[in-house]
């Protein structure tokens, strides 16, 4: 820390920082606490909010934990042994499809709209 060029400058900078307490001020661990409460749909979307969140979510292994947990419960995907990023993304996509599928089977939701998905499966859109 060297001498500051002007104290007025310093003051205004500090004021600016105080005025701007955003969610960005939260530490990595705190954000992880929050992200740990979200499902993988929310996590995937949150990773597109900003670079900081993206890095945290990708590094936190929260999505990977979903992957690992689901893989244990499911034999359908047991042949995918590597946890590489590509297979993770493919897997999450399949998981999403399955999730949508289960919701349909349960028949508890009202379907607002049917539409073809780019990946080739049928999806619905509705308020979950």
């Amino acid at each position: 820390m060297g001498p500051t060029p002007s104290s007025a400058n310093d003051r205004s900078e500090r004021k600016k920082r105080n005025a701007k307490t955003t969610i960005q001020s939260l530490e990595h661990d705190t954000l992880c606490m929050i992200f740990a409460l979200l499902d993988f749909f929310d996590l995937a979307r949150c990773s597109a909010v900003c670079k900081y969140w993206n890095t945290i979510i990708n590094k936190s292994k929260l999505l990977r934990e979903f992957y690992a947990k689901q893989k244990q419960n499911s034999t359908d995907f047991s042949n995918k042994s590597t946890c590489s990023e590509t297979s993770l993304k493919t897997y999450l996509e399949e998981l999403a499809m399955e999730h949508h599928g289960f919701s349909l089977q349960e028949g508890l939701i009202d379907i607002d709209q049917w539409k073809g998905h780019s990946v080739g499966s049928w999806l619905y859109t509705s308020g979950r």
Partner: peptide
């Protein structure tokens, strides 16, 4: 918050996680 992704980066993410943007 504001997006600080480089042009194209966000689109790529949205494409990758298209399934999460449904509903």
């Amino acid at each position: 918050l504001e997006s600080d992704f480089k042009p194209g980066e966000e689109e790529k993410l949205r494409e990758e996680f298209a399934w999460s943007f449904e509903g």
